[in-house]
Amino acid sequence: MQTDQLAKAGTKEWIALAVLALPTLLVSMDATVIYLAVPSISAALKATTGRLS
């Protein structure tokens, strides 16, 4: 392969990217849901700051 040619990603590389990106997406979505739900949950349970941690 010459140095002026760029190697293109094949099917295996795209599958590996999807396998790595999917868990990252799920964790970030979970963190967002928890961040948005904590105020409602703490208000419903009348929890103090010490009990939330």
Rank of each mutant, 00 (worst) to 15 (best):
M1G: 11
Q2V: 04
T3P: 06
D4M: 08
D4P: 01
D4I: 05
D4Q: 10
Q5S: 07
L6F: 09
A7E: 14
K8V: 14
A9W: 03
G10E: 02
T11I: 14
T11V: 15
K12E: 09
K12M: 09
E13G: 00
E13L: 01
E13T: 05
I15H: 00
I15M: 04
A16P: 00
A18N: 03
A18Q: 03
V19W: 02
V19S: 03
V19A: 10
V19G: 02
V19M: 08
L20F: 01
A21M: 12
A21H: 02
P23T: 00
P23L: 02
P23M: 02
P23R: 01
T24S: 12
T24F: 15
V27Q: 07
S28Y: 14
S28M: 15
M29W: 15
M29T: 10
M29Q: 12
D30S: 07
D30T: 02
D30H: 01
D30Q: 03
A31G: 09
T32R: 09
V33R: 07
V33I: 13
I34D: 08
Y35C: 04
L36H: 04
L36E: 12
A37H: 04
A37V: 07
V38R: 12
P39N: 05
P39M: 04
S40T: 10
I41P: 00
I41L: 13
S42N: 05
L45W: 05
K46F: 12
K46Y: 07
A47E: 11
A47L: 15
T48K: 12
T49K: 13
G50M: 06
R51A: 10
L52G: 04
L52K: 14
